[in-house]
């Protein structure tokens, strides 16, 4: 099957590789604020792809779209702030 789910799946695979590369498969060196921002942004975009193209959130009512996309945005923002605040 083609269409949005197949495209989203391929992008999700690529973004998972990108997240692993950003996080370093074996490294323990600090990520810094930019690395934290990149990792949070990539992960947030993956979440949006799952909501939009797998869960078909576009078919749901606007209130559900606001709640679920808002959830990802608020959670990503909170995690970024908590990690960036202690970044070296």
């Amino acid at each position: 099957m083609t269409g949005p789910p197949a495209r989203a799946w391929l992008v999700l695979l690529a973004l998972t590789g990108m997240a692993m590369w950003t996080g370093g498969p074996n490294g323990s060196s600090p990520l810094g604020v930019l690395g934290i921002a990149a990792l949070v942004a990539v992960s947030g975009f993956k979440a949006v792809l799952i909501l939009r193209d797998f869960l078909e959130l576009g078919r749901a009512r606007a209130s559900w779209r606001i709640a679920l996309y808002g959830y990802v945005a608020v959670l990503g923002g909170a995690i970024f702030v908590a990690y960036a605040a202690v970044a070296g």
């Binding site: 999700l12 998972t16 997240a19 692993m20 950003t22 996080g23 370093g24 323990s28 600090p30 990520l31 934290i36 990792l39 949070v40 990539v42 992960s43 993956k46 979440a47 799952i50 909501l51 797998f54 869960l55 990802v72 959670l75 995690i79 990690y83 960036a84 202690v86 970044a87 070296g88």
Partner: peptide
């Protein structure tokens, strides 16, 4: 699926 794509970077990858 959604929960895992948020959990994995937070617990396994993200550091300051």
């Amino acid at each position: 699926d959604l929960i895992w794509v948020l959990l994995y970077p937070l617990v396994y990858l993200l550091r300051s």
